[in-house]
Design a protein around this nucleic acid. Structure first.
Lengths: 148, 148
DNA sequence: ATACGACTTCAAGTCCACTTGAGGTCAACC
DNA sequence: GGTTGACCTCAAGTGGACTTGAAGTCGTAT
């Protein structure tokens, strides 16, 4: 299997090399060796990076992801936790759906102030209400680096 | 209209008083006056706080929300931006939906390693793919303060 | 009148996920 | 064999959104 330079991995996964070093330092990924000083990665690193991206976009912190993937080692995944997080995600999805509708309505509604519009207020309440019980932020996947 | 102490506002909106002071400092909310040193708020602050919560949960930064609500003043909302963000939210929703399915599948699938499961891999790709073009994180609504 | 506790200010600290900078190494190409 | 540019390490810095701490003020209940 072809071994990859950190720059190639960076290219393939869309993360800057500094982030890959940072992830390695945290034990989230591992290089299979070095050529001189340079790290060499194999396909497993790419798999793990894809799982990391998945976890990040599900709102897990890097530490949580580390727990789940097994810091250095084969992924061992806590199924109960995944199901729980899936439930939370479904909540979030419902909330964001209400939110999207509210935004779209606000963008079109001619009422002078949105606070006077019953439709907006209904959607607003729907969007915010569920947020109260959220556990931690669900971030989008890390954005690609700015350059290029 | 009844005027509210910062503690009462905090109680009503579920944010700590320190956050309300912080928001006031940023110009996101304003008190209508003071009783001695103490800030007094009216209903409008609650409305704005609810819009702030809405904006936060849509993934706007406090600065962006400040722009939209008009730092100190009546909300003047950029409709094009709202529609644009609604589109982005819809993207996020689709991604999170794939993600939720992937997590749920991972929680149930008996395959020894998820990386070997075609279903998981398909969902994984679907969940991660769209994340590449995301602009900024869509956070959940701010969590209620820890105590009580 | 006095004590209490909820408020006040301002500066500094925290957390997370990275990024940046300085100074150094070295594999590969000409 | 020399240059180059991608890599290396380690420490420190960044940004957003708050939180905490110290020291002080003051409305309200007893």
């Amino acid at each position: 299997m072809k071994l990859l330079d950190i720059g190639e991995v960076a290219e393939l996964c869309g993360l800057p090399a500094s982030t890959l070093r940072f992830y390695e330092e945290k034990g989230l990924i591992a290089s299979v060796g070095r050529r001189g000083l340079r790290r060499l990665f194999d396909g497993e690193a790419l798999d793990r990076l894809s799982l990391i991206a998945l976890g990040r976009s599900a709102g897990f912190s890097l530490d949580e992801i580390g727990d789940m993937l097994g810091l250095d080692g084969p992924p061992r995944i806590d199924r109960a936790r995944l199901a729980e997080r899936a439930d939370e995600l479904d909540q979030t999805i419902r909330r964001l759906t209400a939110l999207s509708k509210a935004l779209r309505h606000a963008a079109e509604c001619p009422a002078p102030s949105h606070m006077e519009c019953p439709t907006f207020n209904r959607l607003r309440r729907a969007a915010v209400a569920r947020g109260r019980e959220a556990r931690s932020p669900a971030k989008r996947a890390p954005s690609p680096r700015s350059g290029s």
